[in-house]
Design a protein around this nucleic acid. Structure first.
Lengths: 257, 257
DNA sequence: CGCAGTATTGAAAAATATCAAGAGGGGTGG
DNA sequence: CCACCCCTCTTGATATTTTTCAATACTGCG
């Protein structure tokens, strides 16, 4: 392998073995890295949408400001995630995007994606798988918001972050960084920040979640998952081979295995 | 044009002009229509997922049953919609699917989609646009559930159905069929059926929504949209040409315009 | 006519929001 | 090094929204 695998190559590799040609195509999505500062808003709802981006360092979130001054956080993005696919069919942004950490972002225009459609069936299928996984995350979030108590919502949210972080870098002893204020967590869960505080207290009393500023410790992750009614199929089941051998041998873009 | 355009051809035509070859490919997605009865459950959460389907007649909804016996309705599907793309990357269904009306469904296996990836860049892009639009709908639903009052939620829901129906067949005088019980509406909006009833009463008193069994009349759609803070960009902005002429001339699968 | 599913209404209970006051912590300038 | 300030968090009291429970009415259908 000529060069260090980038975030996005690693992400795609979760779904499928990649040829060198595929990797070269993917690297083109990370050509122009830009550093952005924590707190910065990259775009707002209604802005022109002509690009996607990948996030190779730091966390970000998409959000929607409401008429009454409140806002909803829709998705958290971690390194390797692709941002903005929601707007592939749209000319305007449907949600804003803001940085949680100092981050590194790589922009690429919509037609770069169409280039991939044209040249690699494998990468196209993986992109589809990624979008489908994003939809699964969104679905789970919707269920969480609509059907669970504040305690379950928070438990579910924290456990989901725990699991997602575990997929990329092992979380040692249920101890990880969660760089979000209680207000931001409330914005994500449809709760007031006051109630998030109370709910954290309740979870602490049950010894399920210990939170200290931006660090979280889960003394008993499985107990937390149970409280949250967490079913990890929506996170883990998707990381499977997309093609079996029979299908692969018909592929033209992946000969150089 | 040799044959009557099917639902799905019409759906795709909203995004992009199609060659005869493209249409032929799409028709293969509707090869084996099956009639299913109202109320029938086509699959449940956890079932093996190896197929998508298109719905060419009738309404359907996807749902999730919760541990406490409640359930969440995630999406309503109208004729022409593609169902099950959420699970492209998964081996199991993440949500159940049930019929509202007597309906006609066409199943097609996952590899039929990959065949499209391989042979038509245009159709691939349109599929991407469709998935992206589905994600936009889901996003809007999430915002609706998380951030709006019962009255706004219901108003938003009804106005969304009104707009979606308007896109396929003009709704005369704000008068249309909404074949859902108040319990089903509550399941979609995260409200109890009792509260849905009260909220309908409130909307009726304001002369915004008149509901009589499965028929709904909107005397003043714009007033309703205002109450709901409805922004139709997420529905309408997506029906734009995906390719400009410059991009089209590079396409191999759409020569036969 | 009776029955089952659906809708309405009232009263009480539960969950969560809002308002307000105070506590803690970390950065900055003096 | 200290003082101050801003931001975040905590806690209490109260208000609001929605749920739950229960009783009753309506509607289409056999």
């Amino acid at each position: 392998m000529e060069k260090e695998d980038s975030c996005i190559v690693r992400l795609f590799s979760n779904y499928c073995a990649l040829s060198e040609e595929d990797k070269r195509l993917l690297h083109r999505l990370e050509e122009s890295p830009v550093e952005v500062q924590a707190g910065q808003t990259l775009w707002k709802e209604g802005d022109k949408a002509t690009e996607f981006c990948t996030i190779s360092k730091g966390w970000a979130y998409s959000f929607r400001n409401m008429g009454d001054g409140s806002r909803q956080i829709l998705e958290l993005y971690l390194p390797g995630d692709i941002i903005g696919m929601r707007e592939f069919a749209f000319s305007q942004r449907l949600t804003g995007l803001a940085m949680i950490d100092d981050a590194v972002i790589c922009h690429f225009p919509h037609h770069r994606l169409i280039e991939i459609f044209r040249t690699s069936t494998i990468l196209t299928a993986v992109l589809f798988a990624i979008v489908s996984r994003q939809q699964a995350l969104l679905t789970e979030r919707l269920v969480n918001l609509a059907r669970r108590s504040a305690q379950q919502r928070l438990a579910h949210f924290i456990f989901e972050m725990y699991e997602r972080l575990n997929q990329t870098c092992a979380v040692n002893g249920g101890h990880f960084r969660l760089p979000l204020s209680q207000e931001q967590i409330g914005d994500a869960l449809g709760l007031s920040s006051v109630h998030v505080s109370r709910t954290f207290s309740s979870l602490r009393e049950q010894n399920l979640v210990l939170r200290e500023r931006h660090r979280v410790c889960l003394p008993n992750p499985q107990a937390l998952a149970k409280v949250a009614e967490f079913d990890n199929r929506y996170l883990n089941d998707s990381l499977r081979p997309l093609f079996d051998d029979h299908e692969r041998q018909n592929e033209s873009s992946s000969l150089a295995t």
